[in-house]
Design a protein around this nucleic acid. Sequence first.
DNA 1: TTCATGAGCAACCTCCTAGTTGCTCGTTTT
DNA 2: AAAACGAGCAACTAGGAGGTTGCTCATGAA
Lengths: 116, 116
Amino acid sequence: MLNCGDSAVNLSGAAPIFSALGDPVRLAIVARLCKDGPLPTIELKQCADGVSRQGVTKHLQVLEEVGLVESDRTGRDRQWRLQAQQLVAVRDYLGWISAQWDQRLELLRAFVEDDA
Amino acid sequence: MLNCGDSAVNLSGAAPIFSALGDPVRLAIVARLCKDGPLPTIELKQCADGVSRQGVTKHLQVLEEVGLVESDRTGRDRQWRLQAQQLVAVRDYLGWISAQWDQRLELLRAFVEDDA
DNA sequence: TTCATGAGCAACCTCCTAGTTGCTCGTTTT
DNA sequence: AAAACGAGCAACTAGGAGGTTGCTCATGAA
């Protein structure tokens, strides 16, 4: 478990979320929900160009499985909203991982300067 | 194109990178390269538990295609190193996208407080 | 009440992906 | 020189992912 600040993200937990974000349609859906807040399925269908309603539903289910979105049905249609914690967690994971990289670069720089 | 600061990341460009990071083996490889710097294939094979050398090579090629790593051959073995720009770009993309979310929350909060 | 709309479920198809094995080639090492 | 090691290439396989169609159901609007 890699503890980085208040959001503890382990590697095996992050991969499925990246995988979920790895499809252009799903990424567009997440981006849309970030921008415009809770939306019904039909509205999110516009994110997927030429994909059927069932196709979009499948994508939404994938996002739901990894906890990136949640939904409840209000009457006839289903409202989808973002679960920001997961997004923040994976963002922080990338931040943490690239911080390690920066640290390595810094060490290398210091080493070279010492040597010179 | 979604311009966020100095790294301009568009949505369709980010998806393949997320996809590449979406496999646990590949994510482990990237994390390893972040931590320990350039490494030969054989060393990175340890990141993939029980996967053959060719399997690992395939993963590395996927990472190379999306520009997350690059390599060159030194004598008998091939050295792999991280290309941090892509990692930083996708990190910033997530930062930008979740900032939009925060902004929406803030607007909502302000609206509720005004209404009360 | 009737009809249109949004959604759920199940079956199906196709293609890509992760993984394998087998072989060859060049480079170290002994 | 011979053996061992890292790597590249090609063919193949199993399974999952993305997508579809067809049908049914409930709800909201005419």
